[in-house]
Design a protein around this nucleic acid. Structure first.
Lengths: 337, 337
DNA sequence: TTGTATGCGTTATCAG
DNA sequence: CTGATAACGCATACAA
């Protein structure tokens, strides 16, 4: 029972107590913030713990405290520049407030979203952050009912219950139109994807609406998922025929990169002389010299800060604060006036 | 005690049992793979569980089973194309074998690696996968002593104890040299970073060694961390003076993209006519038309498969199988012979 | 300040 | 097949 040496197995507080010659509670108190232990006892415990390689079992701790320090991050396609940047921002901050992010990848099967949300409950996660995918209303309710916080990023089609953190796509898309209009463009295209996420749909629609107000028509191309390849394919489709557009608003920077490459390397076009391009997100690659893409920046850090404040309880739960503006980033893919 | 409605709190097996009119054990068995329960009981339990919104508490389950289903992923800079791709590959596969990835970001402070590894123990993780950073030998031993599996990706400076999964940098770097030599290049440069990770150092050295064997000298530039900006800066430094190189081997595709952009857009050079470029990793961007970078592919999927087999215990623990070849990917940044 | 006793939600063991 | 009971590792109310 009193195995002093930790042999290929986790050490318990009991073992530490025995070695230190104190009670189990003394060990517990030593590792509990703000508990009262004498310095002598604490030192004895710490020495023994170090010797044995003891580490508090958070699983057992969470059992008592009814809630774990785990925050679930639910999403697909992490390897995407935008998603991975958001993930980086979130995990870093979670770490800072003593929480830890558990990643649940829903990329695989389509039905896996249900399994994902179930897992967040299995681990008694204090919160779930949904980065992508379409969470069924019923599942979200289950989480909320279980006292779990649910935070949705850029999927503002869920009107109530979970907290929403999103970018003002409408405003930005309108501004994108005016950018292009001011540059003298009149044959407009929207490069989008078949993903049909709320963000992308909103960008498409708002751009088209702004154009319609100005009496202009818009060609929308959706030739696949939200990726570089899809943007490239869209360029191929759109630029081969007659009546080539002189401007393209891309629902995503990734699409924009693909589209620009098709324009340049498949059709020998010059951006922005022959065709102006505007993107969305401001991923790292947009700033690379090969692209120099004029786009709208999602304020990832500010959004992450806000999300953390929600989890931390430190921030005001102001319902309107979940909306962020996407500021234009002027580079060189749009002709100056 | 027999609150039928789950009001902002997690439901326990006890509550389900009461509603279903069976014992706690019956509930447990219903949710345990391969336990024997009659169909009638199972149905009663499932109905009650569904009604109450019950979910097995993995925290409590792990308490008994001495090991959790959690696998820790330790790393920094997830937003990097290579890292995020590896993360995507791993989390997806973990999901598939019923495990879940817990991400520990060591980006912040330098001393945080210790805290990271400690956390893996706190959560009784069955395994820790180190994607980046320099884990102190002592901490690794602590994990191993606690019965935890430690898997290191591309940091083969740790000779024993943890499992190593890595790419053969030596071989690939030598091949890179021969590619460039066959293309007729003779003024060679290596674009590297100040990160000093085992992989990068190995690539530098092996390339330089191969060049030395052929009687050629190599200029090595390290102007910052492993990033696009650093590659760009290296290009600026290297291409401004006289004696401009006619070939560059970049330790990373990210560096290569930056370097190519500097060459093209700062100095108006043509790749590969004026200068040949070879990268490493084969990140997504290398395949984009703007770069068309000839590089060496890290077999991310195969590596991830191997790692999973290690965790799963399904694979042979063959010590040599942890080494992977990086195959050349021919594109257009090197002159054909 | 310290130790003892209790309970958190599970699963494993054992008797029925 | 089922139910009672004992762990698992920890934090805490309570007594000393």
């Amino acid at each position: 029972m009193s195995e002093a040496r930790a042999e290929r197995s986790f050490v318990s507080a009991q073992q530490v107590a025995e070695l230190a010659g104190v009670s189990r509670s003394a060990v517990s108190r030593t590792f509990t913030e703000g508990a009262s232990v004498s310095d002598v006892t604490r030192q004895k415990v710490l020495r023994a713990a170090d010797l044995l390689g003891y580490h508090v079992n958070h699983l057992a701790r969470s059992l008592i405290q009814e809630e774990s320090l785990i925050v679930c991050l639910i999403g697909a396609e992490i390897s995407t520049p935008y998603q991975s940047r958001m993930l980086e921002a979130l995990t870093r901050r979670l770490q800072r407030i003593g929480r830890v992010g558990m990643f649940i990848n829903t990329s695989g099967e389509s039905a896996s979203f249900e399994a994902a949300l179930r897992q967040t409950l299995n681990y008694r996660a204090a919160a779930s952050i949904v980065l992508s995918g379409a969470p069924p209303e019923s599942l979200i309710r289950t989480c909320v009912n279980n006292g779990q916080q649910v935070i949705l990023i850029n999927r503002d089609n869920h009107p109530e219950g979970p907290a929403n953190v999103s970018v003002d796509n409408h405003q930005a898309a309108r501004e994108a139109f005016h950018m292009l209009a001011r540059a003298g463009c009149s044959t407009l295209a929207v490069i989008s994807s078949t993903a049909g996420t709320p963000s992308i749909v909103a960008r498409e629609r708002s751009f088209a609406a702004a154009a319609a107000e100005a009496g202009l028509k818009v060609t929308v191309v959706r030739s696949g998922p939200t990726s570089y390849a899809t943007g490239f394919e869209a360029g191929r489709l759109l630029l081969s025929g007659s009546g080539r557009p002189d401007a393209a608003f891309c629902a995503t920077d990734l699409l924009a990169c693909g589209f620009m490459d098709a324009a340049r390397y498949e059709f020998g076009l010059n951006v922005p002389a022959d065709i102006c391009v505007v993107g969305f997100d401001d991923i790292e690659q947009s700033g690379w010299s090969a692209y120099n893409l004029t786009t709208f920046r999602q304020p990832v850090d500010a959004m992450a800060d806000y999300i953390i404040s929600l989890i931390d309880g430190s921030g005001v739960e102001d319902i309107e604060r979940g909306r962020f503006m996407a500021a234009p980033v002027w580079r060189r893919s749009v002709r100056p006036r």
